[in-house]
Structure formats: structure tokens, C-alpha cells
């Protein structure tokens, strides 16, 4: 990755924010409206259809809570990786990033067990529009988790060699955002019954 000759443009910083971080902030801004679209649609339907409560009560609050716990913890790992990167400690940053990745993998594992269980009970994507929203919203979030894991793995392997440590913070921002989306998905899909 580092062999790519970077243009001078990339090294400039008229705003004082590094280009990578600035781009991630814009990425987060554009993600807010993507999640806003699906969650806004869901909330409107949910309020307009009180009868969906009978479907919502079949979601597994404990699985949701466990996943919230996992993601919050992985967010802590991401911020500790950032702290290590600030101290130019690439090895430590990589270690915390790997822990973050572990958190993401645990999240996906819990999610897949939970979904398998629900599908076995007949709650599929098409069984009811509540479940359509449930799988779509959590699915879009899950895709973000997977993409984050891949990017983090690349950054961690670079960081271990001390390359591009400033990226640790950028991917951390993205990961915290994914965490925040889950913080809102949790009450929307699991608690509100």
C-alpha cells in the first residue's frame, strides 16, 4: 500500500484536519442519511401500525443487549488503539485494533446465531413487514461491520510495521459511528415492544 506514490495534494491540510480524517467525517455524514432513510421509514411505519408490536415482542432482547455490550467494548478497544497510535506505538495500536476486530467478529457470531434461531421460528424476511425492516436495518448495519473489519485488518497490518498510523484514528471514527448506529438500533428493534 505504501508503495503507491502519493500526490502532494494528499499531504496538504488547509483545514488543519488530516485528509483521511476529514474524508471519514464526510463519509459519516453521508452514512447518517442512509441510516436515517431506513430508520425514518421504519419509525413511521412502526408508529402507524400498532399491531406490529405482536411481532416485535419476538425479538431477543438479550441477544441485542449482548451485542451492544460487545460493540461498546470494541469501541473502547478502537479508542485505545487510537491512543497508542498517538504515542507512535504501532505494535500496541495494532494489538488493540485486532481486539476491535475480535469484537466485530463476536458481534457477527451472536447476530448469526440469533438470526438462525429466528428464521427457524418462522420469522423470516418476508413473514411480516416488521421482520423485513428488522432484517434490512440490521443487515445494512451488519454490512458496515463487515466492511469495517476488512479495512481495520488492512490498517492493523500496516500499523504493526509503523506505517500510516494516522489511519488508526480514521478507521476508529468509522467504527464508533457503526457503534452509535447500533446504539439506536438496539432500542428501535429490541426494546420498543
Amino acid at each position: 500500500m505504501s508503495s503507491f506514490p502519493r500526490p502532494i495534494a494528499t499531504t496538504r491540510s488547509a483545514t488543519g484536519i488530516s485528509t483521511g480524517k476529514l474524508a471519514v467525517w464526510w463519509l459519516i455524514a453521508s452514512e447518517i442519511v442512509i441510516f436515517g432513510g431506513v430508520l425514518g421509514s421504519y419509525v413511521m411505519h412502526r408508529i402507524g401500525h400498532p399491531e406490529w408490536a405482536s411481532q416485535a415482542e419476538h425479538t431477543n432482547t438479550w441477544a441485542g443487549a449482548l451485542n451492544t455490550f460487545i460493540l461498546l467494548t470494541s469501541s473502547l478497544m478502537a479508542v485505545l488503539a487510537h491512543q497508542a497510535a498517538e504515542h507512535k506505538d504501532g505494535k500496541k495500536a495494532a494489538k488493540f485494533l485486532y481486539l476491535t476486530i475480535l469484537g466485530g467478529l463476536m458481534f457477527l457470531t451472536v447476530k448469526s446465531i440469533e438470526w438462525t434461531n429466528e428464521i427457524h421460528h418462522g420469522f423470516t424476511l418476508t413473514s411480516h413487514t416488521f421482520w423485513s425492516f428488522y432484517y434490512t436495518a440490521a443487515g445494512i448495519h451488519g454490512v458496515h461491520v463487515i466492511v469495517g473489519l476488512i479495512i481495520m485488518a488492512i490498517i492493523a497490518s500496516d500499523a504493526k510495521k509503523g506505517i500510516d498510523l494516522q489511519r488508526v484514528e480514521a478507521v476508529g471514527l468509522y467504527w464508533h459511528f457503526v457503534d452509535i448506529v447500533w446504539i439506536f438500533l438496539f432500542p428501535l428493534l429490541y426494546i420498543a415492544k
Binding site: S30, V38, T136
Partner: peptide, 14 residues
């Protein structure tokens, strides 16, 4: 574009 396309991206998936 960034601020307006999000809901449609979600809508396209739906």
C-alpha cells in the same frame, strides 16, 4: 448529492 441520496439508497435496497 451526499445529503439527499441516502434515503434513496436505503429505499433502493428496500
Amino acid at each position: 448529492f451526499m445529503a439527499s441520496v441516502g434515503p434513496l439508497v436505503a429505499g433502493a435496497i428496500m
